[in-house]
Design a protein around this nucleic acid. Structure first.
Lengths: 359, 359
DNA sequence: TTGAAAGCGCTAACAT
DNA sequence: ATGTTAGCGCTTTCAA
């Protein structure tokens, strides 16, 4: 007695025998091939349903040239909703179409990433969504060139569409907000330039600062890997900077949690002593007192976009354009007028915003 | 030219040909069968490595009677780290052993759950980790009886070990903490009794209250599905309760976020007007001012335990006992002495804690 | 210890 | 429109 039979599973052969048709016909009916008489197809599907038939995905994937049984979801970290929430939401969306999501975590290690990509390909995944590790291997790139891919959050120099948050505009908006409040000594805490989004966000800040007539070269800046602890460290260091920043802009969700703790720890009052803008999910930061001004990213929308782009790629549509999800600057109580240190600027922020550029 | 060859993949046949041995020998060497001469086995493995061989997991899973290619991870929600963080961490742990984790989201819908379980079985998963939906189907139970299973967070009446947070002790501790501070009008916001952990937590609170000589029947109580919005609603309702609670105990992570917002929204000062204990990840709640007293659960440890139990189950070890991960009561600034409403109790909390039981 | 060959359950040519 | 049959790439009897 076969393993299958013993487990009480029904297979195409069973269905075929029971209905007096061939396995091919059963298969066709079940995969929705038009080449089978509608009445018969209906009868087959009905019977399959009644018997609780579920196709063995391994067998199907092995023989079918094209199968959407699996897609891979490859991310570096687990401890941030920017990844875990998007992963879960994608799994939810894709499962509705009968696609199973295989989740792998690279820990930002290029070798582990390569290994996982190899195994995913060995699973004959239909495609994958990936947030590439910082120093992606050539071989990984080669693999990615061979399957439908959607990039998430980070661009890894692959020919593939991606879903990114449109940080340029919102970062500029954040800087403008601070400048309008009269801040000129603005500190920046972000992720390294080696990360595509780290580079992007910093560039946006640089440009916005320049536009505001402030030399970005002189900004107190720290760039660290996105973890809570480095957020704490980075903010602590920045607050101790001789330039005595009156505002701190944090450009990463994980860094923000640690940074907020560091600010609290430092005893600075918000917004009297320091204006603070963080990045991430406002639900966390709404609890702070005062609630923190936040750059809010919608993970749901990112997940939806990722699923949509992947489906397009699987359909073999012409390569889609990347999708930019625009974050929102949610102004709350942690940003306020810059302290009037030398009693030489006019009070209030509005006017300071009109400061002319230095020549 | 076969699909495989065209993709430049090497298969066992290639390796066999190149080494002048049979595919059977290659397979044996690669799966670590002892029935192959060590020297030859080494040579085969070496060559396979050099050629970058990765076994097709579909084929392997299809033919092998036992394969750990896949495990399923089935959870109801995506928007809470209690699930998403544990899922990601498990994926990380299991991938090290070459096992791929298939993530599915039931949305707490029994039918969707059943469908997903069927598909997972059809993928020939080696086992699965599941947080059963509230009203799990009989048929789902039947399926779960047939594969190695580890339960997560919730018990669904399955014969399987699970990983749960040991809420009984910590809930009692939380109640004792409040009672020691002199609170007697304690409100409770938790998940429904239909959820195993909801029932457990409430029972622990009931008992602790009774032990403290306070009738739990008279507590203001709300039990809602674990979402932010119901947390907000529940807390809002409780704060408006005629019993005028002086303390609020929230027994779910998702509810806690909403509840904290509701409290802030109500304008009550912590801890002067209200003592608040929340449940979840303290990193979120440390930002609040004052930082919130939190029941902290270690998701990492839960994930580790889940992976360990699953591995045991896959090894066919005798059924393991369930694993209880003990949360920690992190006392912070949101809990303080009960306000001295009628000027009739002694001030301070210590003494109130010694109140004798009512006879 | 190794090889030849039969599947695993399904899909897809090829026939009819 | 349906049936026959040959794989998909691997593991695993069964022989040698």
């Amino acid at each position: 007695m076969s393993e299958r039979a013993r487990r009480g599973d029904v297979g195409v052969v069973d269905l075929a025998r029971e209905l007096g048709v061939s396995t091919a016909t059963v298969s066709r009916a079940l995969t929705g091939s038009p080449a089978v008489r509608p009445a018969l197809a209906a009868r087959i599907r009905e019977h399959a349903d009644a018997r609780g038939y579920v196709a063995n995905r391994l067998a199907r994937g092995l023989s079918a040239t094209t199968s959407r049984a699996f897609v891979g979801f490859v991310i570096p970290y687990v401890d941030t909703p920017a990844y875990s929430a998007v992963a879960a939401e994608c799994a939810r969306l894709l499962s509705r179409e009968g696609t199973q999501v295989i989740l792998t975590i690279t820990e930002n290690d290029p070798d582990r990433e390569l290994q996982q990509l190899r195994e995913l390909v060995a699973t004959r995944i239909a495609g994958l969504i990936i947030s590439p590790s910082t120093k992606i291997r050539k071989e990984s790139r080669r693999i990615l060139a061979g399957v439908p891919v959607v990039e998430l959050h980070r661009a890894g120099g692959i020919e593939a569409p991606g879903v990114f948050s449109d940080d340029t505009a919102v970062m500029a908006e954040a800087v403008a907000h601070l400048v309008a409040l009269g801040h000129r000594e603005i500190a920046y805490l972000g992720t390294p330039r080696g990360l595509s989004n780290g580079a992007l966000r910093w560039q946006a800040v640089e440009e916005a600062m320049t536009r505001a007539g402030i030399d970005p070269e002189r900004m107190p800046v720290r760039m660290f890997e996105p973890t809570r602890t480095s957020g704490f460290r980075g903010a602590t260091e920045l607050l101790a900077d001789p330039a005595r920043p009156t505002a701190l802009l944090v450009a990463s969700g994980s860094l923000s949690v640690g940074a907020a703790e560091a600010v609290r720890h430092s005893g600075r009052r918000l917004p009297e002593d320091l204006s603070l803008i963080v990045y991430g999910d406002p639900a966390w930061f709404a609890l702070s007192d005062p609630p923190l001004t936040t750059i809010r990213v919608s993970y749901d929308r990112i997940a939806r976009e990722a699923a949509r782009l992947l489906n397009s790629a699987l359909d073999g549509d012409v390569v889609q354009r990347s999708s930019l999800v625009r974050p929102e600057l949610c102004i709350a109580g942690s940003t306020g007028p810059a302290p009037d240190r030398e009693r030489q600027n006019s009070p209030g922020g509005r006017q300071a915003a009109q400061t002319r550029r230095r020549s």
